[in-house]
């Protein structure tokens, strides 16, 4: 890290550094204003909410909005949990196998096939939406969570494959060669050497997939209906109507935000690794 060696005396340097810190703190407060407003509004009684008093603290804490929001979400919370658990684990397991094959086994045509897998990560999903809708209807999977699990598993494969491939490249080939000489085959090497070394790779992938799928909206709103929707669709409906009582969508927003936010706060180091992998670094 480089210090800006400000010209002048030590005193001036000290003042400038203090000013920098103060500016940063003010910036952080501005940055956090939306969070303050959500929590603040969600804790007010509906009667106490009016536009002009957005910034006033609640006269008394009103937890009822959270209870109501959970009731409004109904099965959608559980839908999201089912969706995220299944799709995350499936895409992580398949991605791990893919990464193992792509990093440790020479596959014919790999230089063309790997970029084609990666491109799947960047395509606009609007471009597959209509054929996907047709397919899901024909397969009798349209409208429900099982269909959405399949969709998120498949479209998650490019990123999980990429993260695991880059992760496994660092495992020295000599280690695997030695095992191979001792007679270990494809599966022995995977289960006895690669998999035990993959724990942090799995943490990165699971956190990334968990937050992405939990937060996803486009597939959710087009491929599920009614009681089978995940939580993001429920939140959009909660906030969508005109003349809504804003305590409810704000409480809903907090509930929908909490799971990925908690995971991020506890494991941000791994979250950032997923983030960087997704941008090719």
């Amino acid at each position: 890290m480089t210090d800006i060696d400000f010209p002048g005396t030590k005193f001036r340097q000290y003042t400038l550094r203090t000013a920098l810190h103060v500016a940063l703190i003010v910036g952080t407060i501005i940055f956090l204003l939306p969070i303050f407003v959500v929590v603040n509004t969600s804790l007010k009684a509906p009667a106490a909410i009016n536009l002009a008093t957005t910034w006033h603290l609640p006269a008394e804490i009103h937890w009822q909005s959270y209870v109501e929001a959970i009731e409004e979400f109904g099965p959608r919370i559980w839908n999201s949990i089912t969706l995220v658990t299944n799709a995350t684990l499936l895409s992580a397991i398949i991605g791990s196998l893919n990464g193992y094959v792509l990093s440790k086994w020479r596959i014919y045509g790999e230089r063309i096939l790997f970029p084609l897998i990666l491109l799947g990560m960047f395509i606009p999903y609007q471009g597959v939406l209509i054929p996907l809708f047709e397919f899901m209807r024909a397969a009798r999977l349209y409208g429900g969570i099982p269909g959405l699990i399949i969709i998120h598993t498949i479209y998650g494969l490019p990123i999980t494959t990429l993260i695991f491939r880059n992760f496994y490249v660092d495992i020295p080939d000599e280690m695997l060669e030695a095992a191979a000489i001792d007679g270990a085959g494809f599966w022995d090497i995977y289960t006895q050497i690669v998999l035990p070394l993959s724990v942090s790779g799995f943490v990165v992938v699971i956190i990334w997939q968990f937050t992405q799928i939990w937060n996803e909206f486009l597939f959710a709103v087009t491929m599920t209906t009614g009681a089978s929707e995940p939580i993001t669709v429920g939140l959009a409906q909660l906030a969508g109507g005109e003349a809504v009582h804003w305590n409810l969508p704000m409480a809903g927003a907090v509930i929908a935000a909490l799971p990925p936010l908690i995971v991020y706060l506890i494991l941000s180091r791994y979250f950032i690794r997923g983030l960087l992998a997704g941008s090719g670094h």
């Binding site: 937060n215 909206f217 939140l235 935000a257 991020y264």
Partner: peptide, 11 residues
């Protein structure tokens, strides 16, 4: 970055 765009949009 850990939030859904739907959450951000609602806020």
């Amino acid at each position: 970055m850990a939030l859904s765009f739907v959450v951000t949009g609602t806020i």
